[in-house]
Structure formats: structure tokens, C-alpha cells
Design a binder for these strands. Structure first.
Lengths: 209, 209
DNA sequence: CTATTTAAGGACCAAATGGTCCATATATTG
DNA sequence: CAATATATGGACCATTTGGTCCTTAAATAG
């Protein structure tokens, strides 16, 4: 198991020799889709080769091994999720609107066929976080980051007098994070969107004034 | 792939021939532990043989194949969980006490080392529920049963005038189920018990008078 | 154009996978 | 005790696993 350090040349300085023909990011995205629907152990090399349209040689040269490719896919998934959160909780927007958008997004992603598709992060947390330190660190830091953003939004809401009496941003944030991750789990049974949306609304209404 | 129908003789009527030397239920329990910590795809036959102390022949004769054994293990896990819920929500006990016990149990099982151990049902839901119909049915029916029990307890609490204004048992039950399943996910990061307990308390306090 | 450097793709590999089968041991019934 | 029925455990198997390597193709720099 040899790990190859791929250090891309500084921009402007082209690498010598034949340049790579495929788009690395696109390959990572394809791989992410496969891991997403089959899990880490459930994904075999041929699955990845088919999805990325790469040969074994190219895949191993570019990514090292299955585990490294998985980590890249996971990082991409996490990056996308964090970017979305960053957008939803943009401090220039109303914090309650942000919370509503955040919950609505989860409702959308965890109901019907979307729900059945599941979540790479949650699936990975359950499958590997306990045994794989590199995965464990990513999972921990993701939840921490998410909780932080939610807590920030709640703090702003509180400062604006929009929270119900006695609601503390930090513990309410933990509740909301647990709730949305729970949606990802129960979402595997493909619940109706209207039901999930009503449930989320009911929860949020307990926290806002 | 041959499925063998194992129909135990009615008690008193012993089966002919050499009786089984190992305890089937104990073997299922051992297998459950392995699937619990490694997942379905992550568990190899030798892992199961080691844990159950059976030879391949005995294991296949008794259980058919890996998948059938997994289903038995999952059914046992679900049975244990339902029995616990049945106990906690015993209608002869105070419904609020029942809800507190229910949440406290999840807090206990999802914090520290227990949390890192994870949950066979949630892991299975994420790994297989979408692809494996037999698993999917079990997952769906489990969540439905749990939600029902929680809703019943909330209904009794409401009838006793113990719920906060405007709290509807059915949607509050969905919230609590999502919350505890979310705890199972975030529990993979081994959070401190005190924190999780405080979070659960905060949530419940929003629903009771 | 030439030399260099790298990508590409497939042949190849050892190990592990889930699963079958058979010879043997042994507890039961009559 | 004899006959029967079944558990046991290991040998065995085809397939698949993740991973390596080598030949060939091709784009670059000089």
C-alpha cells in the first residue's frame, strides 16, 4: 500500500510529460455517488472503475488506493454540505429564515426517493467512524461545525428577540442537529414530505417566539 | 443458495437423531455482536465462525447463509429494543416518567464508549434498507412501532394535562423519534453523557407542562 | 524532431470471499 | 444392540477482492 503524494504544480508552471486526460474532480464525484449508494465495504473496485470510466492503473496512480479515494469523496461531500450551510446561515440574511431554509433542505433531502437515497456522511459515520480514525475525525469535525453554525444563527435570533423564553442557543442547536440527522435515518423509509415538513415546523415553533 | 426451513418440534416431541450441541440463540447473539460492530458487508464468514465457535457446516446447516443469519440477528436486536420500549412505556407507569426513562436510555447508549459502539438498526438502515427489501421492511416497521409507543405515551400525558399547550402527540412523537435516532448518529463521536442528557432534558421540557 | 515524462489500460496476482460437500462422530429411537 | 438420523468440522471450490506491474501511447520541453 503505497501512498503517492500528488502535489500539483503551482499554477502557471505546467507539469512535464503527458497531462492527465480525465477530470480528477469529476472522477471523485462519480466515486462519491457510488460510495453514497453502496457504502464503503459494499463498493468494489469494478464499481468505481465503471463509474469513473478509469482503468485500474489510472485510478491507483491518481488516488493511491480505495481508502484514499473514499476519503476524497467524503471530503467532497462534507465540503458541499458545509458550503450549503454557510449559504443558508449567511449572517446577512434573517436568522429565522436561515433556520427554516436549513430544516426545509433536510426535509427535502430525507423524504420520498431522496430519503431512501440516504446520506454518505451518516452512513459513513455508522459504518466506519468507530474503527477508522481518519473518518472519525472528519465526522466529528463536521458535526461540530454544523452545530456551531446552527448555534450562531440561534444566537442572532435570540439577540433579535425572536426566540421563545428560556431557549438557549447551544442546547437548542444540539437538538436541531440531532433532529436533522435523525431525519436522515428515518428518511430511509421514504416518508411523505408533507409529514416531515410538518414535524420540522412543529419543532422549530417550539423554539421561536 | 438453499434456504432450510428449521421448524422446531413441538416441545416434548424430541427430534430424531443427534441433537444440536450448540445454543442457537446464543449463536445468533454472538453473530449480532459481530454485525453490530462491523456491519453486514464488513463482516466476513471467518468473523462469524470465530464469534459463534461454529464450523462452516454447522453454521450453514443451522442458518442457511450469511444473509439469513444477519436477518435473525437483526430480528433479535429489534426484539430486544421493542421489549425495552414496551417496558419503559408500560401504561401502568406514569407516562412522563416513561418518556424520561426512554430518553435517558438513549442518552446512556449514545454517549461515551457506548455511543461509539453504535446501533445495529441505524447502521443497517443506512447500509442496507434502501437495497434490501427484507431489511427495509423491518426498519420501517420498527420505526413505526416506536413512534406509535411514544405517541401513546404522549397521548396519555396529554389526557392527564401534563403536556404544554398546543403539543400534539403524533407530531411530538415523530420529533422525539428523530431526535433519539439522531443521538445514535452523533453518538458515534462519543459525546459526554452530561451534555447529551442536558440536551434531551431541554427538548422534553419544551413539550411538558 | 528528439528526449523525456507521464497517462492509460489491461494482464496478472495472492488472498479472501461466500458457499458446498463429504467423511465421521454421536445421540436418539425401537 | 442395531438402525437411523443428524450434527460436526474440515477439505474443497469458483469467484471476487484490492492491488501491482508492464507495455504502449502520447503530450510536453528543448
Amino acid at each position: 500500500m503505497v501512498h503517492i503524494l500528488v502535489m500539483r504544480q503551482s499554477p502557471g508552471q505546467l507539469p512535464r510529460g503527458r497531462p492527465r486526460e480525465f477530470d480528477v474532480d469529476a472522477a471523485v464525484e462519480r466515486a462519491m455517488d457510488v460510495f453514497w449508494s453502496r457504502g464503503y465495504h459494499g463498493t468494489a473496485l469494478p464499481d468505481l472503475l465503471r463509474a469513473t470510466k478509469l482503468s485500474r492503473g489510472s485510478l491507483y496512480a491518481a488516488f493511491g488506493d480505495k481508502h484514499s479515494l473514499f476519503l476524497r469523496a467524503l471530503d467532497r461531500y462534507i465540503g458541499d454540505a458545509l458550503a450549503r450551510i454557510e449559504f443558508e446561515f449567511d449572517p446577512r440574511k434573517d436568522s429565522i429564515d436561515g433556520l427554516r431554509a436549513y430544516l426545509a433542505g433536510y426535509v427535502e433531502r430525507t423524504s420520498g426517493a431522496n430519503g431512501r437515497r440516504g446520506c454518505l456522511l451518516v452512513a459513513t459515520a455508522m459504518e466506519l467512524a468507530g474503527q477508522d480514525a481518519e473518518v472519525g475525525r472528519r465526522v466529528t469535525s463536521f458535526f461540530k461545525a454544523m452545530e456551531g453554525r446552527v448555534a450562531d444563527a440561534l444566537s442572532r435570533a435570540k439577540a433579535a428577540g425572536k426566540l421563545a423564553d428560556g431557549v438557549e442557543p447551544s442546547s437548542a442547536a444540539r437538538i436541531l442537529v440531532c433532529f436533522v440527522e435523525g431525519l436522515r435515518v428515518t428518511g430511509k423509509t421514504a416518508p411523505a414530505r408533507a409529514t416531515s415538513q410538518a414535524t420540522a415546523d412543529t419543532l422549530l415553533d417550539r423554539f421561536i417566539r
